[in-house]
Every structure is written in structure tokens, then in C-alpha cells.
Design a protein around this nucleic acid. Structure first.
Length: 431
RNA sequence: GCGAACGUGGUGAAGUGGUUAACACAUCUGGCUGUGAACCAGACAUUCGUGAGUUCGAUUCUCAUCGUUCGCCCCA
């Protein structure tokens, strides 16, 4: 039979890598919980309109990167390309803004899907961790989200994370700025790239993101957002900078930072990290403030702010920099039966050690040589081997062997758990 | 969507237009039917991504196709 392979752009996570993912995710969760966030799990599938209206029609994600298809009832569904829009839909639909104190603080982990060309640090199905803080417009709310993200990256062991921030201004600022850009690009757009032409129509702000060398000089001369910011937006951005400084969070202002999702307004930011090997995975995380997203989805006028991390990118960076220690699976005890009669007794003891002792135990079901069983115990990183043969069964005992020190002793079965408790507590105090 | 490189066992890999496809690790078996990382012997690619072409003959050359990886765009 022909082997069926995985879908392009997806990847299997197994073995030690699974432990790395779990370690990273649980650390992110526990820090988000310190910041009073609660978990939320929106569905992977949403109606297409959630993202068209949420993420925005002019975004590349909606225009060309979504997995969208009709189901058997001809409803147009989309595999989420990001979490924020789906979470807003969840909050609006379940009226969480009315039954909870605001800001509503939510965190999430799970897979997202984007139809893109796979390459370094980029997959079609990948995992994101992120948070949303909804319903409070204080600049301190934006600040705290940045602090949380930065804290998580530091706790993972990353040093020298760069935080880039910028402001897109409020609705008025953006409208005025958009007008100014349209006015400026009106005479140049004919000579610019195809992407820019469609950006001109859909969202002129995105032209600033263009990397085509021929377009750059034109873009350099474009009006700057700073000149079109309302007093309120300007003050807001300054308050955030002040707060970050007081909290000793390093940041740099990057005026070219626009973000590809349409819902952002006011503060936007990205987290960059270059691994020591020099590999550049792009941003490991990014986010921003969104003023009108909830209204866009039929909800009340509540702003929010959030970020998301690319877990694959973070795991890769940690692996490159050797920050993923102790991800090997280990075993407390490996049980080795000798002879036909011992297998059942061994299973009984294995179950006892697991259920009553709380130890991580595996055993050998195969009839094989003791030497082989020792080899298997070593491969499984077992701390102790437990041998049960005919002689041991005769006098209700087992042999315990410490696989690192090679010490060996004979123990009665009913003293087994006490003995292991003693051995393991001794081990802990030594460490 | 565009551009480039690569595609040999479970893994890491050498290799050549000609009939046994190195080597290493891993795994399994036996030497050793109750004590392991050692040692020795053996097993392990109906075949070199797939299809077609050139050739007396192709894993090796050509083309196509698929896949992987990297870059651009964009993004986490």
C-alpha cells in the first residue's frame, strides 16, 4: 500500500518535541493566569463573514490566505486564520461584556490555518497562543498586554527581545491620514506595483508596507502618520511610552509598522528575536489595539487589545539557542517479569505503583532475556528496574535496582510503596 | 503567485553510465533460557521520490511531475 503523507504546510509534532510544545504552552498559560486572564476556546470553524468583517477585506489574509469552503448545507465556512475575530464573535454572541466586569481578559491556545507558501518558521497549520483584553480603553490596558507578552518571552529564557511599537491613531486620525495618503499617491500610483494599486483602493495605509525597491522612494516622501494624529491619540501613545519606561520594558518606535490586519487602531506592536545562530523567523509575536472590531461584528462599541505568539517560531528559537532542557520523557520504574507466571504478578505490581504510589511506571510484556529488558529500561530513561521472577513470587518479594548507582535490594511486596517513597524523597533532597 | 536548490534504508549519509548500492548509528536475532550500556557473529534498500525519454544498459544523463527546503510577497 502507498503511504499517505501529511498535507503540505502541516507538520507532525511527536516525541521530545511534544514535551517542548507542552512546556512552552503551559508556561504561557500560567503567566497569563498570573495576570488574571481566563482561558477561552472558540471553535476552529467559523462562518466566513466573521473573518471578512473582522480581519477585513483589504487584508492579505482574507484576500488570499484563508481556507474557505462550503459545507454540505452550502454554508460558507472558514478555518480560523487567527483567533481575535472569532473571540469577538464569541464575546458578542454570548454577551460576555454584559455579565462580566470589564476588561474581559481572555487567553487562548490552538491551531490556526493560513494558505501560504511554507518556509522557515511558516506553516499552513500552526499554533498560536494569545490574549485579548476587552472593554477598557485605558492606555494602561495596552501597556499591560505588552508587559505580559514581554514577561512570557523573558520567562522562556529569551534575552534581547526587541519590542517595536507604533500608533495608527484613532478613527479621525486614520481617516485624515488616509485622505492625505490618497491625495499624495494619486499622481504616483500609475507607476507603482500592482499590489500597491489595489492597496490604493482598499487600504492606502498598506502601501507603506510595500517592499518593492522602485516604490520605496515614492513612499519615503509620503505624509507621516505623526502629522495627522489627533491630540488624544498622540497623548495616548505618549502615555504608553512613559508607562513602558517606568516598567523598564525596552521598546523602539517603528513608524513603518502598520500590521496587515484591518482592525487595528491606535497602538500596534511586534516582538522580534534573532536566535544566536542568526536565523530570522520574523516576528515571534505581534498585536495591537482594536477600536471598532466589536461593532464590526454587530456588538457594542467596546475597544480591545491583544497579542498572539507563533508557538512554532518560539519553539524553534528556543531549540536553536539550546533553551529547551529536560524535555526527554523519563520513567520512575520499569517492571521486568521473568517467566510466564510472573507477567500477571508484574502487571499487578505495576498498577499498584501507578494507582496507589503515583509513580510513572512501564513494564515489559514480552518474554525476553533480562539483558534485553535492562536495555529497554535504559532506553526509556527509567530510574529503577523492578525484577519479578519465580523465586521472588515464592516469597512475596521483588528486586529493586537503581539503574544509575547499580544498587540492588530485595523488598517485600507490601513494603514496596513505602520503600519507593523513601527512595524518591531521598533523591529529591539530594537535588 | 514568483525565484532557487535538493530528493539514496528507521536515521545520518558515501557513491558510480554496466550487473553484490559503501560506511556509521539505531533496531532485531544468537553467543549469555535470572542482571543492561562492552565484545563477537548474523539480519535489515524485491532498490536509489514518481513517470517518460536517451542508451545494448541508468540510481548516475535529459525532460516532466510530485515532494522537501530556502528566498521574495505577506505573516505568527
Amino acid at each position: 500500500m502507498e503511504i499517505i503523507k501529511n498535507v503540505k504546510g502541516t507538520h507532525d509534532i511527536y516525541g521530545e518535541e511534544t514535551n517542548s510544545y507542552e512546556m512552552v504552552e503551559s508556561l504561557m498559560k500560567s503567566i497569563a493566569e498570573l495576570y488574571a486572564y481566563n482561558g477561552v476556546r472558540p471553535p476552529v470553524l467559523e462562518y466566513n463573514s466573521v473573518f471578512v468583517r473582522g480581519v477585513g477585506e483589504s487584508s492579505d489574509i482574507v484576500r488570499k490566505e484563508m481556507y474557505t469552503f462550503p459545507d454540505k448545507g452550502d454554508r460558507l465556512l472558514t478555518l480560523r486564520p487567527e483567533f481575535t475575530a472569532g473571540i469577538m464573535r464569541l464575546v458578542v454572541q454570548n454577551k460576555l461584556y454584559a455579565t462580566n466586569e470589564l476588561p474581559l481578559k481572555l487567553y487562548y491556545v490552538g491551531p490556526v490555518f493560513r494558505y501560504e507558501r511554507p518556509q522557515l518558521g511558516r506553516y499552513r497549520q500552526f499554533n498560536q497562543f494569545g490574549v485579548e483584553s476587552i472593554g477598557n480603553n485605558s492606555p494602561m490596558n495596552d501597556t499591560e498586554v505588552i508587559v505580559l507578552a514581554y514577561t512570557i518571552l523573558c520567562s522562556l529564557g529569551l534575552e534581547g527581545v526587541t519590542i517595536k511599537i507604533n500608533t495608527l491613531g484613532d478613527e479621525d486620525s486614520r481617516n485624515n491620514y488616509r485622505k492625505a495618503l490618497k491625495e499624495y499617491f494619486k499622481d504616483h500610483i500609475e507607476n507603482m506595483c500592482e499590489d500597491c494599486k489595489s492597496r490604493y483602493e482598499l487600504n492606502p495605509l498598506r502601501i507603506l508596507d510595500c517592499k518593492v525597491p522602485e516604490d520605496r522612494p515614492i513612499i519615503e516622501g509620503a505624509p507621516k502618520i505623526g502629522d495627522y494624529l489627533s491630540e488624544a491619540s498622540k497623548a495616548r501613545f505618549e502615555q504608553i511610552q512613559d508607562a513602558l519606561s517606568v516598567l523598564q520594558i525596552p521598546y523602539e518606535i517603528d513608524e513603518s509598522l502598520v500590521r496587515g490586519l484591518d482592525y487595528y487602531s491606535e497602538t500596534v506592536f511586534e516582538f522580534h528575536y534573532k536566535s544566536k545562530a542568526g536565523l530570522d523567523y520574523g516576528a515571534v509575536g505581534a498585536g495591537g489595539h482594536y477600536g471598532k472590531l466589536m461593532e464590526e461584528l454587530g456588538g457594542p462599541e467596546l475597544p480591545g487589545v491583544g497579542f498572539s505568539f507563533g508557538i512554532e517560531r518560539i519553539v524553534s528559537v528556543l531549540k536553536d539557542d539550546g533553551l529547551l532542557n529536560d524535555t526527554k520523557s523519563t520513567l520512575d520504574v520499569y517492571v521486568m517479569p521473568l517467566g510466564d507466571e510472573s507477567v500477571l504478578v508484574a502487571e499487578e505490581i505495576a498498577v499498584l505503583l501507578r494507582n496507589s504510589g503515583g509513580y510513572r511506571v512501564d513494564m515489559c510484556f514480552d518474554k525476553t532475556k533480562l539483558g534485553n529488558m535492562f536495555k529497554r529500561a535504559t532506553n526509556k530513561n527509567a530510574k529503577y528496574a523492578l525484577i519479578i521472577g519465580e523465586e521472588e513470587i515464592k516469597n512475596d518479594s521483588v528486586i529493586i535496582k537503581n539503574l544509575t548507582t547499580q544498587e540492588q535490594m530485595n523488598i517485600k511486596v507490601d513494603e514496596l510503596i513505602d520503600k519507593f517513597d523513601e527512595l524518591f524523597s531521598k533523591e529529591e533532597t539530594q537535588e
